[in-house]
Simulated assay, not measured.
Amino acid sequence: MAETLQAVSLLDGASEPGEYAIDPGATGSSGGFIFSNGQHEEYPDADSAPLEEGLRIVAYVVGEGRRPTDAPSVADH
């Protein structure tokens, strides 16, 4: 069974790009993302996080108000 991945975006503000969690060791890509406008997308797996890690990041942000320093991320320009 394929690993469940999720995208975790941390925005600096409503109109700011922020950053997103990554998995530097991931390879390949995942498709099947369908937006409300009907657009279909495929993204590199490295631009997402395994479900368990994504949930850990979100829980940390909610509890501490900031991204955990041990969670790899990149700025979204």
Rank of each mutant, 00 (worst) to 15 (best):
64 E>A: 14
69 T>W: 01
21 A>M: 10
66 R>D: 03
7 A>G: 08
4 T>E: 12
69 T>R: 07
29 S>P: 00
38 G>K: 06
74 V>T: 10
45 D>C: 09
76 D>E: 11
56 R>M: 04
45 D>P: 00
50 P>Q: 03
48 S>Y: 06
13 G>C: 15
62 V>P: 00
58 V>N: 03
4 T>F: 01
6 Q>V: 14
61 V>C: 13
31 G>R: 00
5 L>T: 04
61 V>G: 02
50 P>T: 04
32 G>A: 09
24 P>A: 14
33 F>I: 13
15 S>H: 07
30 S>V: 15
55 L>K: 08
68 P>Q: 14
28 G>N: 10
67 R>I: 14
63 G>F: 05
64 E>I: 11
10 L>E: 09
18 G>P: 01
18 G>H: 04
44 P>T: 01
10 L>Y: 15
2 A>F: 02
68 P>N: 14
31 G>D: 02
53 E>R: 13
62 V>Q: 13
37 N>G: 09
70 D>E: 13
24 P>D: 12
46 A>L: 15
11 L>T: 00
66 R>C: 02
34 I>R: 05
29 S>V: 00
77 H>T: 11
2 A>L: 05
4 T>L: 08
74 V>C: 02
65 G>A: 04
55 L>R: 11
74 V>Q: 11
2 A>T: 11
16 E>N: 08
39 Q>R: 08
7 A>P: 00
66 R>F: 03
11 L>R: 10
24 P>V: 12
17 P>Y: 14
12 D>P: 06
31 G>M: 00
16 E>V: 08
34 I>L: 07
72 P>R: 08
27 T>Y: 05
10 L>S: 07
14 A>P: 10
19 E>C: 10
56 R>A: 07
67 R>F: 11
28 G>S: 11
43 Y>F: 13
67 R>S: 12
14 A>I: 06
60 Y>V: 02
45 D>N: 15
48 S>W: 02
33 F>S: 03
45 D>T: 15
20 Y>F: 15
28 G>M: 05
21 A>N: 02
6 Q>M: 15
6 Q>E: 10
60 Y>I: 01
77 H>D: 14
53 E>C: 01
69 T>F: 00
31 G>K: 00
37 N>D: 15
37 N>M: 01
25 G>V: 12
18 G>N: 05
41 E>T: 05
19 E>Y: 04
71 A>S: 07
70 D>G: 02
9 S>T: 01
67 R>Q: 12
15 S>A: 09
14 A>W: 11
22 I>P: 04
31 G>N: 02
6 Q>W: 00
13 G>Y: 15
